[in-house]
Write a protein that binds this DNA or RNA. Sequence first.
DNA 1: AAGTGGTCTAGACCACAGC
DNA 2: CTGTGGTCTAGACCACTTC
Lengths: 242, 242
Amino acid sequence: MIGEQLAHLVEGLRLQGELKLPSERELAAQLGISRGGVRKGLATLIENGQVVQRVGRNGGTYIRTVNVDSYIVSPPVAPFTVSRSLNEVVGVPTLLVDQGYTPSTRILRAEERDAQKRERDQLGLSPGQRVVTIRRLRSANEVPLSLEEMTLPASVFPDLLSRDLSSIYELMADGYGVSVVTAQERIGVGEATPSAAYLLKVAPGAPLFDIERIALDQNNRPIELSRDLFRADLTRLTVTSP
Amino acid sequence: MIGEQLAHLVEGLRLQGELKLPSERELAAQLGISRGGVRKGLATLIENGQVVQRVGRNGGTYIRTVNVDSYIVSPPVAPFTVSRSLNEVVGVPTLLVDQGYTPSTRILRAEERDAQKRERDQLGLSPGQRVVTIRRLRSANEVPLSLEEMTLPASVFPDLLSRDLSSIYELMADGYGVSVVTAQERIGVGEATPSAAYLLKVAPGAPLFDIERIALDQNNRPIELSRDLFRADLTRLTVTSP
DNA sequence: AAGTGGTCTAGACCACAGC
DNA sequence: CTGTGGTCTAGACCACTTC
């Protein structure tokens, strides 16, 4: 691979305090390869941020210097951002309306099935008991915001699948007299798989908040397991502790 | 750009239920361009996950089908993960020791200077008052974990710069009788700049938790502004609400 | 005007996977 | 053996930036 040769060359020049590489044409001649090969090799250096290029008369390929003074992350470019407070338990539609956005929900899938072992453990169910899982895509102002998968004990919410599933929290309260008062959440960051990327209209590999939640109702009974993927470019989490 | 032509072509084929594109050589002939141009165009489609290629006798360029059933994010590959609870205010060294890791801290920079407008507003200072800013790189078991920039009112912490700055929270309590009891945090995700990537030993563009914090002491006085960048692959945030 | 990177062409050889 | 993508070559023209 030509890329590795070039990487070594750049490392050597950096140690000598050199800032600029020869032009692509010169490099090709010196290394005895074609300009196309040089460009392919430089492409990986550019992708890794080791080198930048500038066109024009005094352009060229420049070695990036590490600047400890400016390590701040790049400001995201987003049409808007949604804030989600971790200090209170509210549903996404409520959240969005409160911030002036128009929420919409697309149900991707809803089904009832036997609870799996892990679900039984976390929801306190016995073997053979049923759960309802709902997979939804939520949007704010028609911009895709999050993918959510929610698992609920079927016994607590009979006939759930025939209801309007766009706002479960409202449905819990109004239809079943259950309110979520406490939630434990675990927040990580994951890369969007191609399918998630397609649904959320981001590039594959784009960062997503990956949030797992166990919610308890007013009787401290586990009532909901969730796995939410929020577009990281559109979402800010806020928390006041303790 | 050739890429756009190809994107339209792929969209058309997808609607017709076609799964496979012509070979690169055929495409070049049909579109009246060179194979190099075709490859360059396909490169962006591959990057966007719209298409995959396979080599060999029955290889070719295949259109990806979206599978709604498997949108879960890819599991991260990490040597270990550190959990940080958002329900309590503890310093990073304490946090790491509690989880069985060996913490280390490298001071990148520490200085005293005039407070800027935004800092004065947030810390409740008057023009001309001084602040101390400290920039640190924290590691767990010698693996870089986070970059932190902390800004403190100099008047509250006289002579701070001559102390051991590896654990500010301990220093606040033991040296100045100040304890942080409340903090407001705003959590986003950003991409590592090349400099941040170099220090944290991740690839440029890798996702980082970007956490801004305002901390209040026992008298509800703002005492600390912070901007922390945590490696997202190593960090999990947990919270129990309310 | 001169030199840079950005792009495209036409052709070649290679490694690989199936027939 | 055949057809695929993966890579490289040699050459050309373009847009852009600076002298």
